[in-house]
Design a protein around this nucleic acid. Sequence first.
DNA 1: TTGTATGCGTTATCAT
DNA 2: ATGATAACGCATACAA
Lengths: 349, 349
Amino acid sequence: MTEIERGRMAATMRDVAQAAGVSVKTVSNYFNGYRYMSAATRERVEAAVEQLGYQINVAARNLRSGRSRMIALVIPELDHPYYSLLAQQVIDAADEVGLSVLVETTGGRRDRELGALSGVHGQVIDGAIYEPIALRPADRGFLDAAMPLVMIGERVFDGLADHVLINDVAAARTAMEHLIASGRRRIAVIGTNDAAPPAGAALRRIGCAEALDAAGIPFDERLMLPVGPWHRAAGAEAIARLIDEGVEFDAVFGFNDALALGAQWLLAQRGIRVPEQVAVMGLDDTEDGRFAHPTLTTVSPGVRQIARTAVELLAARIADPTAAGGFQTVLADFDLMARESTRAAVAGA
Amino acid sequence: MTEIERGRMAATMRDVAQAAGVSVKTVSNYFNGYRYMSAATRERVEAAVEQLGYQINVAARNLRSGRSRMIALVIPELDHPYYSLLAQQVIDAADEVGLSVLVETTGGRRDRELGALSGVHGQVIDGAIYEPIALRPADRGFLDAAMPLVMIGERVFDGLADHVLINDVAAARTAMEHLIASGRRRIAVIGTNDAAPPAGAALRRIGCAEALDAAGIPFDERLMLPVGPWHRAAGAEAIARLIDEGVEFDAVFGFNDALALGAQWLLAQRGIRVPEQVAVMGLDDTEDGRFAHPTLTTVSPGVRQIARTAVELLAARIADPTAAGGFQTVLADFDLMARESTRAAVAGA
DNA sequence: TTGTATGCGTTATCAT
DNA sequence: ATGATAACGCATACAA
C-alpha cells in the first residue's frame, strides 16, 4: 500500500498515535475514558484526532470487545399507536446512554418471539427489551438468550429477567371504578382471553372482577369479550357481535385504546350515542384517543417512564452482567385520564 | 487457554474446519455461497456446523468485510401513523433480503437530519433510507454521507441518490378533483408552507392550484393554511383559526391524514357536520382514517410498495456501489380511497 | 476446487 | 501514566 493510498483511507488509531507521538494504547485509553492520563497527553491526542478527522472503527471495537452498544427492541408490531410510541421512547432513552436500537417485530407469533433473540440479531446485540405477547411461563425453557433482558408488559419469565410494567390489576380496577362511579352497571370488557396469570389480560380481568365485586355488581361472563390482536377492528367486531346478540350494556372498557376506539367507532356507526347511551374507556393514552370524538377516557401508563426504566435497567445489566442481587420488577405509575367518552352518567340505558 | 475453556466457548470457523477436515477458507466459502464446492465437502461442512452449533461471528465478518448488513431508516419520528407504518414495511422488506434496520429519528430538525448519517450510526451502516423534512436543496453540500442512500418523500438531493416518492402534484390534484366533483367550491388546504419545489408541500400546492384552475374556481390564498409539524393538533388549530376568522369553506384537504383528522375532530367539536356541511379528505391512508367517524376519504400512497422499492434500490446499491447509470427516481402508485367524509355534495354551505 | 498466510483496527495484558 | 504486543474471528490474495 502506497503512502498516497494510506492518505486517502480513513485514519486508524495507529495514525492518531503516530501524529500525537504516543502509543495506540494511549489513544485507546482516551476514547474509553481512562482516567489516569496527563493533561498534556490528552491534549495532544485530541489535536491529532481533530487534525486527522479520526473516528473510532466500530467494527473493530465490537470484535475485540465483544460488545456492540446495540440493543434490540422486540415487539409484536410497529404499526400500532402504543408500540410506535414505546419504540420512540426507547430509542430516545437509549440514545442518551449511547445505545443504538434495532427494532424487531414478531407479528405476535410465538415462534418468532422465541427466535427473536437468536440468529443474526442475537449475536450482534448486547441485550434486549422484550415484549412478547404469545409466550407463556411454560416457554421459558425454549428461550435461550444468554444476554441481558428486560421484559415489558407481562410477567412471564419471572426470576429470569428484569421486568417493567404497570400494575395490571390496579389499572383495570381503576378503570372499572371510574365507569361504575359514573353510574354504569353493565360494562362490556374487551380483551379478556383464556390465558392465566401472570398474563396481562388475565390480571386486568381480575382487576375488573374486583371492582365489580366491591360495587356489588354481579359478574356477567357474556360481557367478557375475548379477542385476537388488540386492534381497532377487533374492538369493533366484538361490540358488533354483542349488539347483534342482544346483550345489553351501558359501558365498554377496552384493554387498550385501539380496542376502545374500535368499539367507539362501531357505536357511532350504529347511531349509539357516546357517552349518553354507552360510555367508553381504554388503556394506553395514545394520541388517537385524545383526538377521538368524543375524546377517549383512558388510563395512561406512563410509556416514557416505562421506556426509560427499561433502558436504564438494561444498560446496568450490560455494564455489569455479573451483578447478582436477583432481578427487579418495577411497577410503573399510571393515571386516569377522564375525558368526554365517560362523561354524564345515565342509569339503565 | 485449556481445552476445557475452549470447549465452552463459541465455536469458531477454525473449529468447524478442523471438525470437517477442511480449511477455514472452505468453511468461509460455504457461508458466502461460493459456488464451486464439491457436494461431499459441502456435506462435511454442514455436518460440522450442525454438530458444533456454529454461528458465524458477525463482528469479525463486519471488520474484515467492511460491511454490516445493516441499514438505517432516518425519519422525523416513529410515533406517527404514517412513519410507523413505513418503518414496519421497511423492516419487513429489509428482513427478506437479509438486512437489519436501525431506526433513527430526527424530530424533523435540520441539524439532526444532516448529522444522522455521520457519527456512530454512519459508520456501522451500509446505507440508509432517508426521509428528511427540514432539508432544502441548498443543504446538499452539508450532507457528507459516503454511503448508498435512497431518499423517500421529497426530491431534495436530485442527482445525488435514488428517490422513491409519489407524484405529489398528481396526488394532490386527484384529491382536489374528487372534492370538486362532489360539489365543493371553497376548499381549505392544510399543509402548504413557504418552501419551493421540489419540496412535497410545494408540489402538492401546485396540484391543488391546477385542479382549481381546471374547474374554473378562483384561487383564494386565505384558504391555504401553512402549519408546522403535520400532526392532528396542527390540523385542528388551523381549522379553528379559519372558523374564528369567519372565512367560509365547504371542504378541507389535509396534506396528510393526521392534519385531516385533526380538522375533522375540530369540526365535530364545533358541531359542524361532516360531510353534510364540510367534506374532509386526507392523504396517507393510515388506519386512523379507516376508523374515524365518519371514515376518512384519502389518497393511498402504497406505503408497502414505497418501502419495498426503497429497500430493493438500496440493496442493489450496496451490492454494487460502482454501478453507474445515474440515480433513479421511482414514482409510486397512489389510489383514491373514497369514504364517508366526502360523501353527498351540498352546494354553497 | 481447496489450503496457507496475512491483516482488518481495536482492546487487554503485561511490563515499565 | 504510558508503551509494546498479542489476540479477537473472519475474508481474501495467492499458491497449489
